[in-house]
């Protein structure tokens, strides 16, 4: 099993290291052809406008959508969450639109408002998850078919819809690989 990490811009190295720390091989994806060898994809944090443009310019948008329709699991963090959303509030920027959620960009404010917090995430067990929010988006609205995995101050920050997983925060920046393992289980289930 190989996991692709979209390496157009952003914190792709950290995701690759986290996947490797779980004992799974990770591949950096910059061109559509690299998608052929992976069974799951991570879209990292970074700048969503930058990632979206590079995705379209090099044909990755269509390639990812095709694989997603065929059932490949995708995990998006921060900018990756924005890429997965159907609607980005107040913006006409590109997104893949795979999840029935509406997101608000930079919802927590500018960098001086960025923060970390011990977030309760029931599906991960009793121990909270140290969540790092950097100029983070939140999920303003989620359709009934979207499972809410965590909230911060009543704002939705972690969701799953079928084979798609998305977080406002950055699990790749802490040493805790529980969310990456959760995603790897999703990929294993999809492969079998």
């Amino acid at each position: 099993m190989k996991i692709g990490v979209l390496a157009l811009q952003g914190a792709f190295r950290e995701h690759r290291l986290m996947i490797e720390s779980c004992g799974t091989e990770a591949v950096e994806v910059r061109k559509p052809a690299s998608l052929d060898q992976v069974q799951g994809l991570i879209i990292p944090g970074g700048e969503s406008t930058t990632i979206g443009k590079l995705m379209c310019d090099f044909g990755l948008d269509q390639a990812i959508l095709q694989r997603a329709e065929a059932g490949m699991p995708i995990f998006g963090t921060c900018a990756g969450l924005i890429m997965l959303a159907k609607t980005v509030r107040g913006s006409n920027q590109f997104s893949l639109g795979l999840m029935d959620i509406e997101v608000e960009r930079n919802a927590f404010g500018r960098q001086v408002d960025s923060f970390e917090f011990d977030l309760p995430v029931p599906v991960l067990g009793y121990k909270p998850f140290r969540a790092v929010f950097i100029r983070a988006p939140w999920i303003e609205k989620a359709a009934p078919n979207v499972g809410i995995l965590a909230q911060y101050n009543e704002k939705i920050v972690f969701v799953r819809q079928g084979n798609f997983l998305a977080s406002s925060f950055h699990p790749e920046l802490t040493g805790d690989n529980r969310i990456h393992r959760y995603f790897l289980n999703m990929v294993k289930e999809a492969v079998n």
Binding site: A7, L8, Q9, G10, A11, F12, R13, E14, G45, G46, E47, T50, C78, A79, Q111, V112, D113, S114, F115, E116, V132, F133, I134, R135, H170, L173, T174
Partner: peptide, 17 residues
């Protein structure tokens, strides 16, 4: 807020850019 992880974290998000 303003922790070392958060400060360094934004730079991580700028990488490859």
């Amino acid at each position: 807020k303003g922790s070392w992880t958060v400060k360094k974290g934004l730079a991580e998000m700028l990488k490859g850019g």
